[in-house]
Amino acid sequence: MFSIFITSFIVGGLICVIGQLMFDVAKMTPAHTLCTLVVAGSILDGFGLYEPLIDFAGTGATIPITSFGNALTHGALAEAEKHGLIGVLTGMFEVTSSGISAAILFGFIASFIFKPKGNI
């Protein structure tokens, strides 16, 4: 039971290390880093590799942004089996809609309560 916390921490941390290296070493912008990680998660799921990672690391694999790419591919493939080509389009949003809606809603609420600051 305790070991899942450790594997989750290490796998999640390693994904973040990759992101940090993309910033610091590859000098990528935040937007490029984000998109690349989403695409990487999507491709991994296409080869059926992301679900085993989730089984192994739990939230360590579902919390990082790569999981969003995984969800896009996952939804598209699942719906494609049921509804064909149209399912590819509807499936993507079926699985990810909760995440997108939550981001919009919570972002909206937070913007009412807090004022963004940049200074130290």
């Binding site: 910033f23 610091d24 935040p30 963004p116 600051k117 940049g118």
Partner: peptide, 19 residues
Amino acid sequence: HNAIERQFRYPIEYGTQKG
């Protein structure tokens, strides 16, 4: 600070990391 960082780098509200 805020006007220049926004123009040349990122809006400070974005909170991006600086090396």
